[in-house]
Simulated assay, not measured.
Amino acid sequence: MRKTAVVLIALFLSATPAFAKVKVVATLQWIGSVAGEIGKGQVEVATLVKPNQDPHMVEARPSMILAARKADILMYNGLDLEIGYLPVLIESSRNPNIQPGKPGNFDCSHFVTVMEKPVSVDRSMGDVHPLGNPHYHYSPGRILSVAEGMADALSTIDPSHADAYKANLSIFREKVRAKQKEWSALPTKGRRFIAYHKLFEYLAADFGFTITAYVEPKPGIPPSAGYIERLIGTIRETRPDGILLTPYYGRREADFLTRRTGVPTIVVPHDVGAVPGANDWFSFMDQALSALVK
């Protein structure tokens, strides 16, 4: 009887690690979505920023610090998009796994080619991101590179499931390539848009449309009445296909421009979950691109 009990205890202890999932904490919804595709049953994903939040304006909360404290790996956008709260989370968590330079600190931007990196930055330029435009999650090719980095990082942390992460990556890669063919067939090439904020540059570069002007005179700077009047003149003269904005801001100004010019306002999701039906990164891209061609 005693020997049987010892055997059962040994079996339990040896089996426990097989059921322990890697705790992934992602700052943004799209990161959590891609991490779930690569990790599948081997990971448990918690996402910090809600889909209805402006990612530029997030502040650290105790619940976020607690989540970071429990993380095996922290995945974030990078390029200073999370600069307002991420350093506080990492320091306050006192979690050695996620400190800079550790395998559990995963900066997604390290795996992408960045657009619009300024040579120099000063306050007169508005809220310019000094490391480059951080909104690369609209670029399928760049997201595939991020996914490849995720698979490697998860394999380092959890080598016993490295083959599973590699297999999940292969499935993800094939799905991205199939969707790229589908998305490339949409009539986005040659279209011209006004945008509220510098959010859609990667989307424009990948799908062949142009952003001709911005409702913000400079990034993060609200437009004055005089600027709006000048923009109305520009819109009437150039007749763009639409005015692009996200669900979280710019609607009042865009609707005013639409009333004055007749050019439609187009709401484009900024992240997974931002609009109904954008339940993962693939459906988020479906929604973003279909909004441009409706």
Rank of each mutant, 00 (worst) to 15 (best):
V268P: 01
T238P: 00
A35G: 08
G36Q: 10
Q42W: 09
G36L: 04
P247Q: 02
E253P: 01
K40D: 13
G84S: 14
E201K: 07
S283K: 13
M64Q: 09
D241I: 07
E216H: 09
I31V: 12
A254H: 02
V88Q: 14
T188G: 07
Y165S: 06
L244K: 02
S224W: 11
R236P: 05
H197A: 11
I83Q: 11
S283N: 09
L245Q: 08
V275D: 00
V45P: 05
G277S: 05
R94A: 12
T261R: 06
T156S: 10
R236I: 05
N52I: 00
M285T: 09
P130R: 14
I9R: 15
L28V: 01
G277H: 06
A291M: 04
L79H: 02
K175V: 11
P223Q: 05
F106Q: 01
K21I: 05
R260S: 14
P130Q: 05
A274P: 05
Q99L: 12
L131R: 12
A254F: 02
I83A: 14
P17R: 08
R236H: 11
A153T: 00
L144V: 13
P187S: 06
Q53F: 07
S145I: 10
S290M: 12
K218Q: 13
G101F: 12
N77Q: 14
K21S: 10
P223D: 02
W281Q: 01
P240I: 06
K179W: 11
A15D: 02
V45Q: 02
F200L: 09
M115W: 09
A195N: 05
Y85M: 08
T16M: 14
I221V: 15
T113L: 09
E44Y: 07
T16I: 14
H110C: 03
M75P: 01
P264M: 06
